[in-house]
Design a protein around this nucleic acid. Sequence first.
DNA 1: TCAAAATAGGATAAAATTATCCGAATTAAA
DNA 2: TTTAATTCGGATAATTTTATCCTATTTTGA
Lengths: 144, 144
Amino acid sequence: MFSKACEYGIKASIFIALNSYKNVRVSLKSIAKEINSPEAFTAKILQDLVRHHVINSMKGAYGGFEIEKELISTVKLSHIVNAIDGDAIYSGCGLGLHTCDENHPCPVHHKFKSVREELKSMLENTNLEELALNIKSGASFLKV
Amino acid sequence: MFSKACEYGIKASIFIALNSYKNVRVSLKSIAKEINSPEAFTAKILQDLVRHHVINSMKGAYGGFEIEKELISTVKLSHIVNAIDGDAIYSGCGLGLHTCDENHPCPVHHKFKSVREELKSMLENTNLEELALNIKSGASFLKV
DNA sequence: TCAAAATAGGATAAAATTATCCGAATTAAA
DNA sequence: TTTAATTCGGATAATTTTATCCTATTTTGA
């Protein structure tokens, strides 16, 4: 569904959000450990998220990654997915046609419509806050 | 969403079905031309579909690919997707966790539930017959 | 000011996916 | 029986994705 990079990016963002509530900046190392991801590869993804202003970074001692507390509830899953994978997953053609729309639909265009729309609205209506709270309460998990 | 291989596989299957209604066996070459795919790569995918009994092949002159007419309506999109991509797309964890279920859900498990289920039922309830008929009637297209 | 702790970023490698090439095997018609 | 038209299957190459390594740069505290 998502690329590995995107999976890591989502999990990392949740962990960062969780700590930002506690005013704690987290290091690459602790992120990779927490979400079970390769460190150097995760670094690239985090850089990407920083460039897209999904998260903030701070170099140097006591540096790390964070998200402004007030912004956590405004960061949608769609922002993260878009930054890493682009929007092809919910706006591209399911069969890879260059032009695929109501006037020139691919064979599964209409069949896919509701799936795509449900996915899109899910991504656009899910924010980091709720995801972080579920991790905090033990209702969901970042690894295993 | 799907791999390129899977996209080609779906389109090829539709084209084969369409011709099988007319009792015409289609060659690799005409398939690749019709669905705009690289010939040799398409050959590999068709071999895969043959091995999974989604389509039949006949070697030699006047050979090619076909699907038994009576079976066309029984071939579901899920069969094709499964043969090529496996079932991870609608049964695997959205964030790649090894174990992700009601008892140990990943952060997006519940959010994804309806999307996954909709996708799954769509794939399991869409058969080649309807897809082929829409191509035939000009209601949908295999390329561009 | 210096040392330690971090992220940033470029270069490279490994693995997976996508794509190509070619000879072998099979089939039907001439 | 030969020939032409096919699929099959193995080897290989190109591209993309995933992953690693190393050095530069930044930041803070001692």
